[in-house]
Amino acid sequence: MPVARDIMTPSAECVGAEDNILTAARKLTDLGVGALPICGTDNRLKGVLTDRDIVVKVLGKGKDPEKTVAGDLAQGEAVTIGADDDADEIFATMAQHQVRRLPVIDGHTLVGMIALADVARALPDPQTGDLLEALSSN
């Protein structure tokens, strides 16, 4: 069975915890992605910022995207997956935490990102349906 490092998108770029949301939105746009890991000045992963976070938690609440920083949107400890964890473990982690994207770490180093589509391609068909159902339920 494939492991995370086999199916991830390698070399994920971070948005800095102190970067403002406007900078983060431009980075999402430039990279053509829907999520970026949030990294602190200590090079530790602080969370994941999604395009939805920007719309709902910043714009939707009338906050200024130039004054709001990415670190303000990091919620507790980031949910991650180990680089050598297999597709079943990735599936279980995504379902348990109701997330569609996971940072992949090797020790404490961010080595990539894995998205729902990556896992769907790696899992047998019945598990893919289970994952989509688990992520879609409230």
Results as ranks from 00 to 15, higher is better:
residue 1 M to F: 07
residue 2 P to F: 04
residue 2 P to Q: 01
residue 4 A to N: 08
residue 5 R to H: 08
residue 10 P to F: 07
residue 12 A to V: 04
residue 14 C to I: 06
residue 14 C to H: 09
residue 15 V to H: 13
residue 16 G to W: 14
residue 16 G to E: 15
residue 16 G to V: 13
residue 17 A to E: 14
residue 20 N to A: 03
residue 21 I to K: 04
residue 24 A to Q: 11
residue 24 A to H: 08
residue 29 T to K: 15
residue 34 G to P: 02
residue 34 G to W: 03
residue 34 G to N: 09
residue 37 P to F: 00
residue 42 D to R: 00
residue 42 D to E: 05
residue 44 R to C: 08
residue 44 R to H: 13
residue 44 R to K: 15
residue 50 T to I: 04
residue 52 R to F: 03
residue 58 V to A: 00
residue 59 L to H: 01
residue 60 G to M: 01
residue 61 K to G: 00
residue 61 K to H: 06
residue 61 K to N: 04
residue 62 G to I: 10
residue 62 G to E: 10
residue 63 K to W: 15
residue 64 D to M: 13
residue 64 D to W: 13
residue 65 P to S: 07
residue 66 E to W: 09
residue 68 T to Q: 09
residue 68 T to E: 12
residue 69 V to M: 05
residue 73 L to A: 07
residue 75 Q to D: 07
residue 76 G to L: 07
residue 76 G to N: 04
residue 76 G to P: 03
residue 78 A to L: 04
residue 79 V to L: 12
residue 81 I to R: 00
residue 82 G to Q: 13
residue 83 A to L: 11
residue 84 D to T: 14
residue 84 D to E: 15
residue 88 D to H: 11
residue 90 I to C: 02
residue 90 I to M: 06
residue 92 A to W: 13
residue 94 M to P: 01
residue 95 A to Q: 12
residue 98 Q to I: 03
residue 98 Q to N: 11
residue 101 R to K: 10
residue 102 L to S: 03
residue 102 L to Y: 06
residue 103 P to E: 02
residue 103 P to V: 01
residue 104 V to C: 01
residue 105 I to W: 00
residue 105 I to V: 13
residue 107 G to F: 03
residue 111 V to T: 11
residue 114 I to V: 15
residue 115 A to H: 06
residue 119 V to W: 12
residue 120 A to D: 05
residue 121 R to D: 01
residue 122 A to Q: 14
residue 122 A to T: 14
residue 125 D to P: 13
residue 127 Q to L: 11
residue 132 L to W: 01
residue 133 E to P: 02
residue 135 L to T: 04
